[in-house]
């Protein structure tokens, strides 16, 4: 069991317990975390699960695919060159067994 923390702009925080293999998008959708949509179901095609990863977890993240790189150019809230990722591409694993993200103000233009 691992913990995903979602920080919202209004100061509210969601703490979600997730099992290995679950993505940051999936855990959010299943548990009704506001502000993460996941419209395409996790195919890196819609950029509606954009998150800003908190600094202390950046070194643990999987490498970014070309698709994800391209989608991050068209997110509704501005891309942060260092912290922006798609939640569907961040899966809980042995190396990433805890993560905290900030939920952007907008996912859809």
């Amino acid at each position: 069991m691992s913990m995903i923390t979602y920080h919202h702009e209004n100061g509210h925080t969601d703490l979600i317990v997730a099992v290995a293999g679950t993505s940051v998008m999936r855990a959010a959708v299943i548990n009704g975390v506001e502000g993460i949509i996941g419209e395409c179901g996790g195919q890196a095609m819609c950029a509606t699960c954009h998150v800003y990863v908190r600094e202390e977890f950046l070194d643990l993240l999987p490498e970014m695919s070309d698709d994800e790189e391209e989608m991050l150019e068209i997110t509704a809230s501005p891309r942060d060159e260092v912290r922006s990722r798609l939640g569907c591409q961040l899966k809980i694993t042995t190396s990433l067994n805890e993560i905290a993200v900030d939920v952007p103000p907008m996912q859809v233009q």
């Binding site: 293999g21 999936r26 299943i30 009704g32 179901g41 996790g42």
Partner: peptide
């Protein structure tokens, strides 16, 4: 994952 992705959370 053998569990379908829900459209919305149960609650």
């Amino acid at each position: 994952d053998a569990v379908a992705l829900p459209l919305r959370a149960e609650r």
